[in-house]
Protein backbone atom coordinates (compact mmCIF):
# COMPACT_ATOMS: atom_id res chain seq x y z
CA UNK A 1 0.00 0.00 0.00
CA UNK A 2 1.09 3.55 -0.41
CA UNK A 3 0.64 4.67 3.18
CA UNK A 4 3.49 3.42 5.40
CA UNK A 5 2.99 3.17 9.10
CA UNK A 6 6.00 4.20 11.20
CA UNK A 7 7.49 1.24 13.03
CA UNK A 8 7.08 1.40 16.80
CA UNK A 9 10.38 2.40 18.43
CA UNK A 10 10.47 -0.47 20.88
CA UNK A 11 9.81 -3.32 18.50
CA UNK A 12 12.25 -6.19 18.97
CA UNK A 13 12.15 -9.42 17.00
CA UNK A 14 12.04 -12.32 19.47
CA UNK A 15 12.51 -15.86 18.33
CA UNK A 16 9.90 -18.19 19.74
CA UNK A 17 10.92 -19.71 23.04
CA UNK A 18 13.37 -16.94 23.90
CA UNK A 19 12.89 -15.05 27.15
CA UNK A 20 13.48 -15.50 30.87
CA UNK A 21 16.48 -17.71 31.58
CA UNK A 22 16.56 -18.87 27.98
CA UNK A 23 19.17 -16.30 26.94
CA UNK A 24 21.86 -18.03 28.96
CA UNK A 25 23.57 -20.56 26.72
CA UNK A 26 23.34 -24.19 27.76
CA UNK A 27 25.78 -27.00 27.12
CA UNK A 28 26.13 -30.64 27.95
CA UNK A 29 28.72 -31.99 30.33
CA UNK A 30 29.77 -35.31 31.74
CA UNK A 31 30.41 -35.09 35.46
CA UNK A 32 32.69 -37.96 36.51
CA UNK A 33 32.38 -38.34 40.27
CA UNK A 34 34.58 -40.52 42.46
CA UNK A 35 31.98 -42.34 44.55
CA UNK A 36 32.66 -44.13 47.81
CA UNK A 37 29.74 -45.85 49.49
CA UNK A 38 31.21 -48.04 52.24
CA UNK A 39 27.76 -49.35 53.22
CA UNK A 40 27.38 -51.11 49.86
CA UNK A 41 30.78 -51.37 48.11
CA UNK A 42 34.23 -51.72 49.61
CA UNK A 43 36.09 -49.84 46.89
CA UNK A 44 35.68 -46.37 45.49
CA UNK A 45 34.48 -46.19 41.88
CA UNK A 46 33.81 -43.63 39.14
CA UNK A 47 30.28 -42.72 38.15
CA UNK A 48 29.35 -40.56 35.15
CA UNK A 49 26.41 -38.19 35.04
CA UNK A 50 25.34 -36.53 31.79
CA UNK A 51 23.90 -33.11 32.52
CA UNK A 52 22.68 -30.06 30.64
CA UNK A 53 24.01 -26.98 32.40
CA UNK A 54 23.91 -23.20 31.96
CA UNK A 55 26.84 -20.95 31.19
CA UNK A 56 26.49 -19.36 34.61
CA UNK A 57 26.67 -22.68 36.49
CA UNK A 58 29.48 -23.83 38.73
CA UNK A 59 30.64 -27.34 39.59
CA UNK A 60 28.55 -27.03 42.76
CA UNK A 61 25.41 -26.47 40.63
CA UNK A 62 26.22 -29.64 38.70
CA UNK A 63 26.56 -31.58 41.96
CA UNK A 64 23.23 -30.13 43.13
CA UNK A 65 21.60 -31.18 39.88
CA UNK A 66 22.87 -34.73 40.38
CA UNK A 67 21.73 -34.84 43.99
CA UNK A 68 18.34 -33.23 43.42
CA UNK A 69 17.38 -34.79 40.09
CA UNK A 70 19.44 -37.94 39.51
CA UNK A 71 20.83 -39.59 42.62
CA UNK A 72 19.95 -38.32 46.07
CA UNK A 73 22.59 -40.54 47.68
CA UNK A 74 25.49 -38.43 46.34
CA UNK A 75 27.16 -36.88 49.38
CA UNK A 76 29.20 -33.70 49.58
CA UNK A 77 29.59 -30.73 51.92
CA UNK A 78 28.56 -27.20 51.11
CA UNK A 79 27.03 -24.37 53.04
CA UNK A 80 27.36 -20.80 51.78
CA UNK A 81 27.73 -21.66 48.07
CA UNK A 82 29.66 -18.40 47.65
CA UNK A 83 33.27 -19.06 48.59
CA UNK A 84 32.98 -17.94 52.20
CA UNK A 85 32.47 -20.97 54.44
CA UNK A 86 35.20 -23.24 53.07
CA UNK A 87 33.04 -26.40 53.06
CA UNK A 88 33.37 -27.60 49.50
CA UNK A 89 37.05 -27.98 48.68
CA UNK A 90 37.40 -30.93 46.33
CA UNK A 91 39.65 -32.17 43.56
CA UNK A 92 38.27 -30.91 40.25
CA UNK A 93 40.10 -32.14 37.15
CA UNK A 94 42.98 -33.19 39.39
CA UNK A 95 43.43 -29.91 41.29
CA UNK A 96 41.99 -28.70 44.58
CA UNK A 97 39.26 -26.12 44.06
CA UNK A 98 36.09 -24.87 45.75
CA UNK A 99 33.16 -26.33 43.79
CA UNK A 100 31.22 -23.11 44.40
CA UNK A 101 33.94 -20.94 42.83
CA UNK A 102 34.66 -23.06 39.76
CA UNK A 103 32.59 -22.11 36.70
CA UNK A 104 31.87 -25.02 34.38
CA UNK A 105 32.52 -22.81 31.34
CA UNK A 106 36.10 -22.33 32.51
CA UNK A 107 36.71 -26.09 32.35
CA UNK A 108 37.12 -28.22 29.23
CA UNK A 109 33.51 -29.37 28.77
CA UNK A 110 34.38 -31.56 25.79
CA UNK A 111 35.91 -34.05 28.22
CA UNK A 112 34.42 -35.52 31.42
CA UNK A 113 34.95 -33.25 34.43
CA UNK A 114 36.41 -35.32 37.25
CA UNK A 115 35.41 -34.59 40.82
CA UNK A 116 37.09 -36.35 43.75
CA UNK A 117 37.46 -35.88 47.47
CA UNK A 118 40.54 -34.03 48.71
CA UNK A 119 43.56 -36.26 49.41
CA UNK A 120 45.32 -37.16 52.64
CA UNK A 121 42.34 -37.10 55.01
CA UNK A 122 40.28 -40.23 55.84
CA UNK A 123 37.51 -40.66 53.27
CA UNK A 124 34.06 -41.11 54.80
CA UNK A 125 31.64 -41.06 51.88
CA UNK A 126 31.79 -39.82 48.28
CA UNK A 127 33.30 -36.33 48.53
CA UNK A 128 33.25 -36.12 52.32
CA UNK A 129 36.44 -36.59 54.32
CA UNK A 130 37.08 -36.55 58.06
CA UNK A 131 38.38 -33.02 58.73
CA UNK A 132 39.33 -33.71 62.36
CA UNK A 133 43.11 -34.21 61.79
CA UNK A 134 43.11 -30.92 59.87
CA UNK A 135 41.40 -28.99 62.67
CA UNK A 136 43.56 -30.71 65.29
CA UNK A 137 46.67 -29.15 63.70
CA UNK A 138 44.84 -25.83 63.48
CA UNK A 139 44.06 -25.88 67.21
CA UNK A 140 47.66 -26.75 68.11
CA UNK A 141 49.06 -23.48 66.78
CA UNK A 142 46.73 -21.54 69.13
CA UNK A 143 44.74 -19.53 66.58
CA UNK A 144 43.67 -16.76 68.93
CA UNK A 145 45.09 -13.51 70.26
CA UNK A 146 47.35 -13.92 73.29
CA UNK A 147 48.29 -10.67 75.02
CA UNK A 148 49.94 -10.39 78.44
CA UNK A 149 49.48 -6.63 78.78
CA UNK A 150 46.73 -4.69 80.50
CA UNK A 151 43.26 -4.94 79.06
CA UNK A 152 42.96 -1.77 76.97
CA UNK A 153 39.97 0.52 77.54
CA UNK A 154 39.48 0.90 73.79
CA UNK A 155 40.73 -0.88 70.72
CA UNK A 156 44.29 -2.18 70.37
CA UNK A 157 45.96 0.15 67.91
CA UNK A 158 48.07 -1.10 65.05
CA UNK A 159 49.78 0.84 62.29
CA UNK A 160 48.91 0.12 58.67
CA UNK A 161 52.50 -1.02 58.12
CA UNK A 162 52.27 -3.51 61.00
CA UNK A 163 48.95 -4.78 59.72
CA UNK A 164 50.36 -5.28 56.22
CA UNK A 165 52.79 -7.90 57.60
CA UNK A 166 50.00 -10.46 58.09
CA UNK A 167 47.09 -9.07 56.07
CA UNK A 168 47.37 -11.85 53.50
CA UNK A 169 47.05 -14.67 56.04
CA UNK A 170 43.90 -13.22 57.66
CA UNK A 171 41.94 -14.25 54.56
CA UNK A 172 41.95 -18.00 55.27
CA UNK A 173 38.56 -19.77 55.32
CA UNK A 174 39.95 -23.14 56.54
CA UNK A 175 38.84 -25.04 53.46
CA UNK A 176 41.85 -27.43 53.57
CA UNK A 177 42.50 -27.06 49.82
CA UNK A 178 46.12 -26.21 50.61
CA UNK A 179 46.88 -28.88 53.20
CA UNK A 180 45.28 -31.63 51.11
CA UNK A 181 47.23 -30.54 47.99
CA UNK A 182 50.56 -31.06 49.77
CA UNK A 183 52.57 -34.18 48.79
CA UNK A 184 54.25 -34.13 52.20
CA UNK A 185 50.88 -34.19 53.98
CA UNK A 186 49.62 -37.09 51.81
CA UNK A 187 52.40 -39.34 53.07
CA UNK A 188 52.91 -37.84 56.53
CA UNK A 189 49.59 -37.04 58.18
CA UNK A 190 51.44 -35.76 61.25
CA UNK A 191 52.79 -32.76 59.32
CA UNK A 192 51.07 -29.56 60.51
CA UNK A 193 50.34 -28.64 56.91
CA UNK A 194 50.05 -25.29 55.12
CA UNK A 195 46.73 -24.16 56.65
CA UNK A 196 47.95 -24.47 60.26
CA UNK A 197 51.14 -22.57 59.34
CA UNK A 198 49.13 -19.87 57.54
CA UNK A 199 46.99 -19.37 60.65
CA UNK A 200 50.04 -19.36 62.91
CA UNK A 201 51.60 -16.73 60.61
CA UNK A 202 48.49 -14.59 61.07
CA UNK A 203 49.27 -14.27 64.81
CA UNK A 204 53.08 -14.57 64.77
CA UNK A 205 53.36 -11.38 62.71
CA UNK A 206 50.56 -9.54 64.52
CA UNK A 207 52.15 -6.73 66.58
CA UNK A 208 49.31 -7.01 69.17
CA UNK A 209 50.09 -10.66 69.92
CA UNK A 210 52.66 -11.78 72.52
CA UNK A 211 52.85 -15.53 71.86
CA UNK A 212 54.80 -15.46 68.60
CA UNK A 213 57.79 -17.24 70.14
CA UNK A 214 55.58 -20.04 71.46
CA UNK A 215 54.07 -20.60 68.04
CA UNK A 216 57.51 -20.52 66.39
CA UNK A 217 58.64 -23.16 68.89
CA UNK A 218 55.61 -25.33 68.01
CA UNK A 219 56.38 -25.04 64.30
CA UNK A 220 60.10 -25.68 64.81
CA UNK A 221 59.04 -29.29 65.52
CA UNK A 222 60.15 -32.05 63.15
CA UNK A 223 56.55 -32.14 61.87
CA UNK A 224 56.56 -28.35 61.52
CA UNK A 225 57.68 -25.92 58.81
CA UNK A 226 60.86 -27.85 57.97
CA UNK A 227 58.74 -30.57 56.37
CA UNK A 228 57.81 -28.08 53.63
CA UNK A 229 59.43 -28.99 50.29
CA UNK A 230 58.18 -25.83 48.47
CA UNK A 231 56.10 -27.59 45.80
CA UNK A 232 53.76 -24.55 45.64
CA UNK A 233 50.71 -26.82 45.29
CA UNK A 234 49.18 -25.03 48.30
CA UNK A 235 49.66 -21.55 46.84
CA UNK A 236 48.17 -22.69 43.55
CA UNK A 237 45.17 -24.32 45.26
CA UNK A 238 44.20 -21.58 47.74
CA UNK A 239 40.80 -20.15 46.73
CA UNK A 240 41.58 -16.93 48.61
CA UNK A 241 44.77 -16.32 46.69
CA UNK A 242 46.87 -16.43 49.84
CA UNK A 243 50.62 -16.68 49.11
CA UNK A 244 50.85 -19.80 51.25
CA UNK A 245 54.40 -20.88 50.37
CA UNK A 246 55.55 -17.30 50.97
CA UNK A 247 53.94 -17.35 54.44
CA UNK A 248 55.64 -20.66 55.26
CA UNK A 249 58.99 -19.24 54.08
CA UNK A 250 58.50 -16.20 56.34
CA UNK A 251 57.87 -18.48 59.31
CA UNK A 252 61.01 -20.52 58.47
CA UNK A 253 63.06 -17.33 58.36
CA UNK A 254 61.49 -16.06 61.59
CA UNK A 255 62.43 -19.29 63.38
CA UNK A 256 66.03 -18.89 62.25
CA UNK A 257 66.31 -15.20 63.12
CA UNK A 258 63.73 -14.92 65.94
CA UNK A 259 63.26 -11.24 65.34
CA UNK A 260 59.56 -11.17 66.15
Amino acid sequence: MSTELPEPASKIELKPGVGGGGEIPTFNITLRVRRYTPESTADAYWEDFKLTMYGTDRVLDALHKVKWEHDGSLSFRRSCAHGVCGSDAMRINGRNRLACKTLLKDLDTSKPITVEAIKGLPLEKDLIVDMEPFFQSYREIMPFLINDGHEPSGERYQSAADHAKFEDTTKCILCAACTSSCPVFWTDGQYFGPAAIVNAHRFIFDSRDDAGDMRLEILNDKEGVWRCRTTFNCTEACPRGIQVTQAIAEVKQAILSRTV
Binding site: R91, G94, T114, A117, K119, T231, N233
Partner: peptide, 12 residues
Protein backbone atom coordinates in the same frame (compact mmCIF):
# COMPACT_ATOMS: atom_id res chain seq x y z
CA UNK B 1 39.54 -45.69 48.65
CA UNK B 2 41.90 -42.79 48.12
CA UNK B 3 43.26 -43.90 44.77
CA UNK B 4 41.89 -41.67 42.07
CA UNK B 5 43.58 -39.47 39.53
CA UNK B 6 47.12 -38.21 39.94
CA UNK B 7 47.25 -34.74 41.49
CA UNK B 8 47.88 -32.22 38.71
CA UNK B 9 50.51 -29.98 40.25
CA UNK B 10 52.35 -27.31 38.34
CA UNK B 11 56.06 -26.41 37.91
CA UNK B 12 56.72 -26.41 41.66
Amino acid sequence: TSSGTLYRGREG
